[in-house]
Nucleic acid binder design. Sequence first.
DNA 1: GTTCCGTCCTGACGGC
DNA 2: TGCCGTCAGGACGGAA
Length: 287
Amino acid sequence: MPELPEVEVVRRGLDQWVSGRTIAKAEVLHPRAIRRHLPGAAEFAARLEGREVRAAERRGKYLWLPLGDGRDALMAHLGMSGQLLVTDSASPVEKHLRVRLSFTDGGPELRFVDQRTFGHLLVTEMVDLARPVPAPIVHIAPDPLEESFDDEDFTRRLRARHTEVKRALLDQSLISGVGNIYADEALWRAGLHWARPTERLTRPKIGELLRGVREVMADALDQGGTSFDSLYVNVNGESGYFDRSLAVYGRRDLPCGRCGTPVVREPFMNRSSYSCPRCQVRPRGRS
DNA sequence: GTTCCGTCCTGACGGC
DNA sequence: TGCCGTCAGGACGGAA
């Protein structure tokens, strides 16, 4: 599924193939794909048609294309299965095509394809903060790859929480862009068990955790950015074109890359947490 | 105010 | 072979 590094690759692809072009027509093929655009499909299309697309931006897993003078934008979240494809208008329609944008230059169109429709698109006003962001995501914290991410502020707010460290990592209002996979990988790099209470984490340990988050994302981005010239391979949110070299995620019973101990899978928030029972010791009194 | 949990969705997969 | 249950999981709304 698309995580922050994949979304960044999509952003770069959109920048290359879509920015600077003018939208001719917008078609909504599945209403759920624009469910957060409350005025509906007709208004969605009207807000887009005839508008010029500016440079693509991203915060966490949200992407947006500012329109015209930049006071509004087309915003996208890919969810778990969403893809933004830049493709020739004559190419066959994908089974799960949800939204389709064509351009006045007659060049390749932009398609939003999403099997499970957890993703969505909307047109929204921008809010002029220190960095302008789409209105629906003003409550989202900066992601750890943004310049405006404040390590000191994160440390203070994390220690003020009374919860498990992984829950906090997945809380978008504290730090954005970290999903289940990279949370597990970053915790493994920092030698932290996912159930460790946030209020007892030391400053150096939080420093290690942030370093783990940034390194695992940077590694993925390095790998994803290597073959960046093919239209079809890169402007999408497909998992699998990153050879993520995961250390623990999805590796139940396989040896930990550091100590060889078999990785364990534990239920967590109706999903899974993977960790090394030796490198990431479970806090006492928590089972 | 903070924390937690159910819900949305479709396809792959395993068990019977 | 085919049916059914389970799992995957980001974000949000509402309950505790």
